[in-house]
Design a binder for these strands. Structure first.
Lengths: 110, 110
DNA sequence: CCACATATATTGGTGACCCACATATATGGC
DNA sequence: GCCATATATGTGGGTCACCAATATATGTGG
């Protein structure tokens, strides 16, 4: 499937987008992406956590551990100013990319 | 850049789309994708030819060598019925994918 | 004669993604 | 009391695509 290949690379953009409104933890991000896309976009845990670390190293997001009694510890991530800048850039890239593919492939949204 | 990652996986779809109208050879496909996307979508030769072989093995396209005097030999590819079916499926996948990403990321085309 | 465009092709390295597995807690069903 | 399932985070190892670099070969323009 085309989608399988394309999903690669989109994950970062989705995470940045979801963190724009409020901070969230990894598992939550995974479930949100899956439910909000009606199952079209799925996310493997083995991709999720390494990706979050990479994004944190890059300074786009910052995580903090939250521990509540009677709950498993969670790591909540929030967007940094650099992350917001990256998000803006990726939004533009995304639009440009979609426009380009549509133009070359002749896709129209009837 | 987001685009760099996303370009992966879209190549097949673009090639199938371009071959729908008429048969073309590898180098031509590469140049067409680049020019029609205004340089947004670039294509590495080291990806192009192996990809064409894979698509031919899968039975989506068929190539034939064309040799003219005073010209380097070219391999023209045309779409097979199976390729056309695959193209239809990929068009749907593409639309579904774009819709899903837009919904999750909150992108709107103003 | 040499740089460049055309045209096809491969080797070798990098890097992302994912299967499978591991750990730990709370809840619901039987 | 026990077991499956949901929640939540994490990793080792294999696979696979992409790409930089390189190679071959011909026609054109300066």
């Amino acid at each position: 499937m085309l989608t399988d290949e394309l999903k690669k690379g989109s994950a970062e953009f989705l995470i940045l987008s979801l963190l724009e409104a409020e901070s969230r933890h990894g598992y939550e991000l995974q479930k949100l992406i899956e439910s909000r896309s009606d199952g079209v976009l799925t996310f493997n845990v083995a991709s999720l956590y390494p990706l979050l670390y990479r994004m944190e190293e890059r300074g786009w997001i910052v995580g903090r551990w939250v521990e509540k009694s009677g709950e498993r510890r969670k790591r909540f991530y929030r967007l940094t100013p650099a992350g917001r800048t990256a998000l803006d850039a990726q939004r533009e890239s995304w639009k440009e990319f979609v426009t380009a593919i549509n133009r070359v492939s002749g896709v129209r949204y009837a």
